[in-house]
């Protein structure tokens, strides 16, 4: 019981203190995990809370980075807030267009059409020279994050970037939590559990799904923006279905339909992959074993583990 109360505080303390003892590589790796959690949580809003399994979600993650890369001048930094808003809003528009199309389909056809749109964006970026083609684009100078000259974060500094990511992740998780607990979230639950009846009791489910789809795409854009800032480069692979599939695996591994699930799933899978990569070049085989074991013994994902169960 005490463990349950103390553990979250300890984890938070650990996350805040991590840059103090970790070396550069580990801080970067931790940031990478945090960014991924943002993206995976946004996918979970669709898959876990609304019952919409998308294989094209990376389109929004990658496109967000591309917006930043396209807007960034070659030799001077962009204002962080302008770049951030521009990325999120452009992705919101893209999400509305994609969503309006794919949400006309259901079930397996929904999965296929999200996959198709995502791949269309991939080939568009890959095969045209509008945004660097297959090489992608560089962000030479990272955006400048300062408030009236008295407070400044250097985004090229791994520690500064880590804290920015940590703060944004917490904001994202709070936003998702509130959406789920809101009247809007209640309708999403209705759609997930029984869309037919939800329509019959007077909800225009298409509208609700579309709004949810746009919100999820914009949260994915937060992750994509941070990923682009972290590496200073974007490439077509960022929008590819591999990224979507990987994120979907993390949702399921952690436990879909819970706020904690993507946090656990992403952290575990990324640590496991990293660990196995150090051991052997056949790391994917070992990762597969872990996923199969979780699927067999924890059908609800890692959140099904005893320590995460709510006290009665």
């Amino acid at each position: 019981m005490i463990l349950r109360k103390v553990l979250p505080a300890l984890i938070l303390l650990g996350l805040v203190c991590l840059p103090l003892w970790g070396d550069r590589f580990y801080i970067q790796f931790a940031s990478k995990i945090l960014v991924m959690i943002i993206f995976v949580s946004s996918l979970n809003l669709l898959v876990g809370f609304t019952g919409l399994v998308s294989l094209g979600h990376a389109a929004f993650f990658g496109f967000s980075g591309y917006v930043l890369a396209i807007l960034s001048p070659l030799d001077s930094p962009m204002n962080f807030f302008v770049a951030f808003l521009a990325s999120i809003l452009s992705v919101g528009v893209l999400g509305a267009i994609f969503g309006a199309l794919v949400l006309r389909t259901k079930g397996i056809f929904f999965i296929m059409s999200t996959l198709a749109l995502g791949e269309m964006l991939f080939y568009f970026l890959h095969d045209t020279n509008l945004a660097g083609g297959s090489d992608g684009m560089y962000i030479n100078v990272r955006p400048n994050l300062s408030l009236f000259d008295w407070w400044h974060l250097d985004l090229a500094n791994v520690i500064h970037f880590y804290y920015l990511t940590l703060i944004l992740l917490f904001l994202v998780l709070i936003v998702i939590r509130r959406i789920i607990a809101s009247p809007f979230g209640r309708v999403l639950t209705g759609i997930r559990v029984n869309e037919h009846r939800t329509k019959a009791i007077g909800y225009n489910t298409y509208k609700f799904k579309l709004v949810c789809f746009v919100i999820a795409s914009m949260i994915a854009a937060v992750g994509g923006f941070l990923a682009a800032v972290q590496y200073g480069v974007v490439n077509p692979e960022m929008v590819g279905w591999h990224v979507s599939g990987h994120a979907l695996m993390m949702v399921i591994l952690g436990g879909k339909g819970t706020v904690l699930g993507p946090v656990l799933g992403t952290t575990t899978l990324m640590l496991v992959e990293e660990g196995f990569q150090m051991l052997t070049k056949h790391w994917q085989l070992l990762t597969g074993v872990v996923i199969v074991l979780v699927a067999l013994f924890l059908p609800k994902g890692l959140v099904g583990l005893k320590i995460f169960k709510k006290a009665p």
């Binding site: 607990a181 009247p183 809007f184 209640r186 309708v187």
Partner: peptide, 10 residues
């Protein structure tokens, strides 16, 4: 007419 409210808890 509250179904499009995102932030207040139910």
């Amino acid at each position: 007419e509250i179904s499009m409210r995102f932030f207040g808890a139910v």
